[in-house]
Simulated scan of single mutants.
Amino acid sequence: MANCNHDCESCSASCGERQDPASFKKPAHKESHIKKVIGIVSGKGGVGKSMVTSLLAMALCRAGKQVAILDADVTGPSIPKTFGLHGQALMTDRGVFPMETRMGIKVMSINLLLQNETDPVVWRGPIIAGAIQQFWTDVIYGDVDFLLVDMPPGTGDVPLTVFQTMPVDGIIVVASPQELVGMIVEKACNMAKMMDVPVLSIVENFSYFKCPDCGKEHSIFGKSRLAETAAAHGVVCQDKLPVDPLLAEAVDNGKLEEANVPALPQTTELLLKML
């Protein structure tokens, strides 16, 4: 601290110059009334975190809940494409209005603010973190049961900004079978623990491939370690997602809501019980 005459890093928690993490929390827009904020995280990219976010949003919406998605992956946004959303969000003097999918899921993403959705976002970490904070404070989500935050991979600026700025009620960790035997999932879980945020569920994506001819399931990325990994972190809730080419095609075409999508029954049920 600028005015300290001692080592702040080693002082007691009672030091008047130190701020409690809770003091960084920012209020949502005055016209936003959000009951639960859930973060969807991963230790690395390419594991289907945005897919899990989208599937959960659809499952909660079908259960009669009002759902919004905050796409916090600023440099690699994929939520708008998943739902076939194009164009720009409405910006007014009151605030920014998110776009809505066919099912009524509200979506806020950097791609909905760019002049051209293929323009790259070449920003440094602090600028990205500031944008994420504005997605929370300046966007009018209205009455929402669940705000799902699709975070970028890792434990850097953006996840830290989300944890410190928003009242996150819990996180869902997404991983592939290979990562469940390593340290990547443990890093995500340990970050949540450091920020005093509970790990609600672990979702294993690419868990198996079901043969369309014989119906047999094949673990093409290795034996599932989901149960033992969840147990090691005291996480009871867990779900598996298969490798599904038809699901990937639906995402590429922006028609996920029209596809026959797999369920995340345990995770969905747990979230519904939180209300």
Score class of each variant (00 low, 15 high):
residue 91 M to V: 14
residue 86 H to I: 10
residue 2 A to E: 15
residue 120 P to N: 11
residue 168 V to R: 01
residue 159 P to Q: 12
residue 131 A to P: 06
residue 162 V to K: 02
residue 167 P to G: 02
residue 162 V to W: 03
residue 208 Y to D: 01
residue 69 I to G: 06
residue 264 L to A: 08
residue 1 M to H: 12
residue 92 T to D: 01
residue 74 V to K: 10
residue 42 S to P: 10
residue 262 P to I: 08
residue 128 I to E: 00
residue 20 D to N: 15
residue 258 E to R: 09
residue 46 G to Y: 10
residue 135 F to N: 00
residue 251 V to D: 09
residue 219 S to F: 14
residue 19 Q to I: 11
residue 49 K to H: 13
residue 213 D to Q: 15
residue 9 E to K: 12
residue 138 D to N: 14
residue 256 L to P: 03
residue 267 T to N: 05
residue 105 I to M: 05
residue 32 S to K: 02
residue 103 M to G: 11
residue 185 V to W: 01
residue 18 R to P: 07
residue 124 R to H: 11
residue 4 C to E: 13
residue 190 N to A: 14
residue 239 D to W: 00
residue 68 A to W: 01
residue 142 G to D: 11
residue 243 V to R: 00
residue 130 G to L: 06
residue 12 S to F: 03
residue 260 N to E: 13
residue 244 D to K: 03
residue 4 C to P: 04
residue 63 A to S: 14
residue 163 F to V: 03
residue 152 P to S: 10
residue 37 V to Q: 01
residue 81 K to C: 03
residue 227 A to P: 09
residue 212 P to M: 12
residue 57 A to M: 09
residue 23 S to W: 04
residue 245 P to R: 08
residue 185 V to I: 12
residue 72 A to S: 10
residue 254 G to H: 06
residue 96 V to L: 15
residue 4 C to Y: 04
residue 34 I to T: 05
residue 38 I to M: 09
residue 204 E to G: 07
residue 148 L to I: 07
residue 6 H to D: 06
residue 95 G to L: 08
residue 68 A to R: 05
residue 135 F to D: 02
